[in-house]
């Protein structure tokens, strides 16, 4: 049964991802992106990473996608300017995409992956928290300083000129 559900989500994610790229209408692309994010969250659930799945929904759907929609909403239709995708430099694009694809496939096949327990963990949040506060404290702090910088930058940009 898990297989059927898994493949359902795989097909859903890939179809939606294709729609993001191929849709001529930006806002439809944004909605397809919503489905893609959901599909990725479902993949995390299959990996027993429930907390990461929740974070995916909260940050990507609850934050980034809303900002995207906000941006599109303020530009399209109200000022009667049609905004849509236009593809330029297809040849070069295809080349770069093919290179990335080959690189990814190579990386996936030749990396000595760490394969551990196949037992479903009882809870994940506790161990994530402990690890963030001990072994990975420095990356965690660096990420928070980066976010703080982005926040201050946004506040400065949004400030009224005096």
């Amino acid at each position: 049964m898990t297989n059927i559900v898994f493949w359902f989500f795989v097909i859903m994610t890939i179809t939606a991802a294709l729609m993001v790229v191929l849709s001529k209408n930006l806002i439809y692309a944004a909605i397809a992106l919503l489905v893609t994010f959901l599909g990725v969250a479902a993949m995390y659930v299959f990996l027993w990473a429930d907390f990461i799945a929740g974070t995916q929904v909260m940050i990507y759907i609850g934050g980034i996608l809303i900002l995207l929609l906000f941006g599109i909403m303020l530009t399209h239709k109200i000022t009667s300017v049609r905004i849509s995708h236009t593809n330029v430099q297809r040849g070069v694009g295809a080349l770069i995409v093919a290179a990335i694809f080959v690189g990814l496939v190579w990386m996936i096949n030749f990396t000595p992956w760490l394969k551990v327990t196949t037992q479903e963990p009882l809870q994940t949040v506790h161990s994530i928290g402990t690890l963030l506060m001990t072994d990975f404290l420095l990356p965690f702090e660096v990420a928070s300083v980066l976010l703080l910088g982005a926040l201050i930058g946004a506040a400065v940009l949004a400030r009224k000129e005096t």
Partner: peptide, 20 residues
């Protein structure tokens, strides 16, 4: 296990619906 976090996360669908 992540019940309260899940509720906070999926509540954001409402905003997207309102924007749409």
């Amino acid at each position: 296990n992540i019940g309260i976090f899940y509720i906070l996360a999926v509540s954001s669908f409402g905003v997207i619906g309102i924007i749409l």
